[in-house]
Amino acid sequence: MASTRPSHLIRTAAALAAAGLALAGCSAQPGTAATVNGTTISENEVDEATSEFIALTGQEDVTPVAVLNTLVEGELLDPIATEAGYAVSDAEVQQFFLEQASLGGAAQRPDVESEAFLDLGRYLLQYNEIYASPDAQAIFAEAETARQEADIEVNPRYAQTDDAGAFVPTVRDWIHQGEPVPTPAG
């Protein structure tokens, strides 16, 4: 039996190495969450923006997949919005976040440290301004065309894309979700 144990370990190690190579091959570089037309959005950027957004809003249910999708959309919308006259500066984004924190009753000033969090805020501001404008339909149609034509690669750790190009969180069929654990209250 001792002679089969080393071959079992070798097969397991080989399977893990192959899985690691397959996952690494899905992104341009290790640590990449997505690329949009050659621009990299790193896993660190997604994590930072997610953490900062949760800290600002208190919305614990915001997922990295939702943040990544917004960052991808922002990468595509920003040049179109800027060209249409809806450019938003970092100072405007920071002011927006301060206002949101104040409206939410935050006791302290939110930290706006990461560039990705600024990008997230920029998208939110641009989207809202465009949505309220008379040229919203044309700008959003141009953004949709840009999305359809974009070269977008998403790390499968975060999501897959469906036929329409929307992000669908990756589901691992081999991970059993199980039944919810009952709470002490019943």
Rank of each mutant, 00 (worst) to 15 (best):
E115Q: 09
R109K: 08
D111T: 12
D173G: 13
A164T: 12
Y127S: 15
A141R: 09
D163E: 10
H176S: 12
E179L: 11
V154E: 01
T145E: 12
Y127P: 03
P156V: 04
A150E: 05
Q126L: 12
G165N: 09
P134S: 13
D151Y: 01
A107H: 05
A136W: 00
Y123S: 04
P169I: 08
F117H: 00
S133G: 12
A143N: 14
I139Y: 04
A116P: 01
F140Q: 07
L125M: 15
F117M: 05
D135I: 11
A159C: 07
Q148I: 01
P182Q: 00
A132W: 05
P134K: 07
L120I: 07
A116S: 06
P184G: 09
G178P: 08
G121Y: 01
Q177D: 13
Q177P: 06
A166T: 06
L124A: 13
D163L: 09
A136S: 15
D119L: 07
G165W: 03
Q137D: 15
E153S: 15
R122E: 09
A143L: 05
A150V: 09
I175C: 08
E153C: 08
D111K: 10
Q148G: 15
G105D: 02
A132C: 07
T170H: 02
T161A: 08
E179C: 03
A116T: 06
I175D: 12
E129H: 14
I175S: 08
V154T: 00
E153A: 15
A141L: 11
H176D: 14
E113A: 14
Q177A: 14
L118K: 06
F140D: 06
G178L: 06
Y127K: 13
P184R: 11
R172M: 11
Q137Y: 06
R109C: 02
R172L: 14
P182I: 00
D163V: 01
N128G: 13
R172H: 12
D163N: 07
E113F: 01
V171Y: 02
D173W: 03
V181I: 14
S133W: 09
A159Y: 01
L125N: 05
E142K: 13
N128S: 15
L125F: 12
